[in-house]
Design a protein around this nucleic acid. Structure first.
Lengths: 343, 343
DNA sequence: GCGTGCATCGTATACGTATGCACCTGAACC
DNA sequence: GGTTCAGGTGCATACGTATACGATGCACGC
């Protein structure tokens, strides 16, 4: 480390160490002249306050953990940077934490890291981890997915998803398959509910086996897509609870030589960067991830400041339907093309 | 925080605080009986050592910064998790750091965070940041890209890239364009050199304007791709210095209705997850990112332990050519198809 | 029986910052 | 001119852990 301490600055400025501390933090009760002298001394020595010393004294570190349980899921890396930006804007640091092991072990790792609070991703419904953390005195907020009784900041899917899927059904699809998310996640449950409502509203019946509950992964989408699309009859539309699932379906469609949207319409959720690529053009539901992160950070920091417990809060981010080519109305009648050399 | 300290444990176990410290860290000079008593007391109280206290006492935090300058580039998020894994395997934590501002300001942020060392990504050739950091006593290692005089762990592109591009040229391409990386990056420079060598070797001449120096982004690839592919004559192959550039070209090709590989062959570098997707099937050069991260972590921790300066080290990771459909030999003669309704 | 050595443990202290409190100085006021 | 008051500063200490060093006890040796 820098090894130049506030004592060194104090000696050079001819004041006491506490005066240095006060002067540099704009604390009241220091004359402008002294403040100036201290500042100059600090600059000359290249003084930077020690995080450890400050943490020990304040009982605060200014560090927030981002708990990522599912390292393999391609979605979560995309959350990291918005969260980092949001934290930086509030003068806090991001410490990445892996989520392996029992709640007790995870809680211990968090404790040992001396974090002021934790943002949790990929929380499953009914997880004890938020409780365990709060019991141990670590404020925590769930991001995107949550469990009842814990603070949660997530996306409200209802309006946008209804619009997207509704628009799809308006095209007259009768054979629709649904790849819904895991039922032990709040996102999986809610998006499924919204989709079911739209279906019911239009009187579309989803045959058994065409409604599948899957993890939010590309591979699951690919696998299920293969099952569904190589059967006869096959669906003309697949509604997916996440972009990764949808991308899996799109990939399978490409493999099987099915053309999108002519032979098959697909929708997703999340609007990952590649969803908008010309190559992909996936119709999906988008939202402002920076907004999501900022809201979560705001709530967490508020919890840290009060840190007397109060009723769990639930903040929601607006979402927007982003229809693209994957649900565009085909220029040729559906199923008119035998597929051939499309690769 | 937990607020239960080693003193509390000491009181409960009927020993002194230092004994607790020694007992729990398996330090020598503690009788098995005492050790056991201390362990039980610690368990009962749910004691977790304070990171701040330990950091202050040891002068070490066990935290490593990952400096990400280019938050917008889609490549770097993919580095975060392998680095995190590698650090976790060595009992260290990852703190994300943004790289904005002058070297002096960045160095101050790093200092203030009390990091044991820093891994730098997206270092430009000639950056003073590594020097500035070392001058301030912070060990640092460059990841993937570096600058002379600093430690560097990167990928050796020569063999694999020669093989990939060589294989491409063996198909008889005469009109080849090259999207090379920025010349102020070590990766950009070296990959360009390798590509040029292969070209020279086969006697392929790249016309002026067909060799472009671009940032490693999707947008740049898209833009340059549009320029090149809508001209007449257009290249039959585009060699790209990164997957993002190549994906940009693929996207443009899709927009223009060009078929890959029939009308156009494309190569990339990095083997991003989507490069292998059926939808994409980009020929590229792959390497083990976990390996890259582990090597960088290993070097950095070694530097921290010695921390007397010695000659800068340069470690390299093996790469492999991963030819896929984007450079497959077309089943139909090249340029035989007018493009039509391919979308 | 006394000294030597080792194993075991406690005492004192360092690490760097922040804060409660006492202290001092000068000015203002009666 | 003494008192009051407030602004400005230093002193002492707390935060929690790790370590150098000293103290104690016991076993063993002669």
């Amino acid at each position: 480390m820098s090894s130049v301490t506030s004592h060194d600055v104090a000696a050079l400025a001819g004041v006491s160490q506490p005066t240095v501390s006060r002067a540099l933090r704009e604390a009241p009760g220091i004359s402008p002249a002294t403040r100036q002298r201290v500042r100059e001394a600090a600059d000359r020595l290249g003084y930077v306050p020690s995080a450890a010393g400050r943490a020990l004294s304040l009982g605060r570190t200014g560090r927030i953990g981002l708990l990522v349980t599912d390292l393999d899921n391609a979605y979560y890396p995309l959350l990291i940077e918005p969260v980092h930006r949001a934290l930086a804007a509030r003068d806090h640091e991001l410490v990445l934490q892996a989520g392996g092991g029992t709640p007790a072990r995870v809680a211990e790792r968090v404790l040992a890291s001396g974090l002021d609070g934790v943002l949790m991703t990929s929380t499953t419904e009914g997880s004890d981890l938020p409780d365990e953390l709060r019991r141990r005195g670590v404020p925590c907020v769930c991001l995107q997915r949550g469990t009842p009784g814990a603070d949660l900041v997530d996306v409200d899917p209802t309006e946008a998803l209804t619009e997207l899927v509704g628009g799809l059904l308006d095209q007259g699809h009768q054979r629709v398959a649904v790849l819904s998310g895991p039922s032990d996640t709040s996102t999986g449950l809610e998006r499924a509910r919204v989709v079911r409502d739209v279906m019911d509203d239009r009187g579309i019946e989803v045959p058994t086996g065409w409604w599948r509950e899957l993890p939010f992964t590309l591979e699951a989408g690919q696998q299920a897509g293969h099952d569904l699309l190589s059967a006869d009859p096959r669906p003309t539309a697949v509604v997916c609870a996440s972009d990764l699932l949808a991308l899996g379906v799109l990939n399978t469609a490409a493999t099987l030589g099915l053309r999108v949207p002519d032979d098959l319409a697909v929708t997703g959720f999340d609007d990952l960067p590649m969803a908008g690529w010309p190559l992909v053009q996936l119709s999906t539901v988008g939202y402002d991830v920076d907004d999501l992160a900022a809201e979560a950070v705001d709530l967490l920091l508020a919890r840290i400041d009060q840190h007397e417990p109060s009723a769990p809060q639930h903040r929601r981010i607006r979402a927007t339907a982003r229809p693209r080519r994957s649900t565009a109305v085909p220029t040729t009648p559906r199923n008119a093309h035998p597929h051939q050399e499309t690769r």
